[in-house]
Design a protein around this nucleic acid. Sequence first.
DNA 1: TAGATTGTTAATCGATTAACAATC
DNA 2: TAGATTGTTAATCGATTAACAATC
Lengths: 215, 215
Amino acid sequence: MTERQISQAVIRRLPRYYRYLGELLENGVERISSNDLSKKMKVTASQIRQDLNNFGGFGQQGYGYNVKYLYTEIGKILGLDKTHNIVIIGAGNLGQALANYAAFERSGFLLKGIFDINPTLKGMTIRDVPIRMMEELPEFVQNNDIEIAALTIPKTKAVEVAELLVDNGVRAIWNFAHTDLNLPKNVIVENVHLSESLMRLSYNVNRYNYFNAKE
Amino acid sequence: MTERQISQAVIRRLPRYYRYLGELLENGVERISSNDLSKKMKVTASQIRQDLNNFGGFGQQGYGYNVKYLYTEIGKILGLDKTHNIVIIGAGNLGQALANYAAFERSGFLLKGIFDINPTLKGMTIRDVPIRMMEELPEFVQNNDIEIAALTIPKTKAVEVAELLVDNGVRAIWNFAHTDLNLPKNVIVENVHLSESLMRLSYNVNRYNYFNAKE
DNA sequence: TAGATTGTTAATCGATTAACAATC
DNA sequence: TAGATTGTTAATCGATTAACAATC
């Protein structure tokens, strides 16, 4: 089938729909209309219907959407019905925090390995996953069907390590390093630049000041 | 002065400009044209000029932009020329990782306190900042001119704690909890929903599969 | 001065919202 | 059937890109 091109704006919103539907499900809500959901989520009902219809007609006129069905379908769209093997590169504070975050497993992201260059970490385990040395990385990635790598290492090494990962078959990089990775188009890069997030926050706190200071 | 309304799309890009300009500065580059910068950053030169001109005419015809000047100005726009007192609520893995991340201090974000409900953490320090109990929070926030709070606690408590923070004068919440905070409009909320980020990555890895499975 | 490059207006493109016919 | 609500088309809005006069 020829793939329709879904805009990244829509994809940004999908996990949030998924979260709200999950909560409705937990609360035993069986059906919901785009209008009711729009009030909860503070987006327009029109946007909800447009977004969902990119993927199919999940609702029913006069009824709305079945919460459980829609939740499941969005889960499938997001690939959460499958498992994804993941490694973490960099066992510093952030890498360890991610490794300890057990909730990812529930969504099908299975932590298979943690890697670092620091020999004092060798053999240490986090949630039963041992920290390995970087020398083992290429073979490990090849032999364990690793799809996703979380990159929590300093930017100086990030580009080089990302290329190594891709060369050994990793298809997606969850990039926490403060740098852009210029990888082939078929490799997915999802950036989490915490410092940039904090700067946006700072901008919004400060926005009046700058203009006022100019007068 | 009446504040011009700058779109969030522009603000999203500012920290990235700042990062590239910082690198140019480190490399001793003195001036750069929008065209050269556009090639490095993979955005259009037109967008760069439009974005910057929201804030002022920082360039010079026939010359381009002075790297150091532009870097400094964007820093001011982002509020990085001032210090911001910050507290972290939740001394779990992620909270500790953020606390240990010293690079924020260089951008003017000063960690003043870490709070948790777990009494076994009481008195522990991270980078000389003691972990305090939640009971002390209101008074501490009021007396220490705390502007920003990073919220790294489970979603069940997040809404309630966010309101407590705002009631005691916090102006911005860096929200890592997996929930939306519905706070007054004058409070800045910057969300970092890691699980949603990972789902977007997963979508992009999987995007072909869903459509193909339907045939 | 001639060349380069900005600042800014105009054109295009894409995303959001509104409207409503289809239909459960 | 009548009422509700979707799916989808059309209208609007906003963001991006192109073009070029202004000017260093």
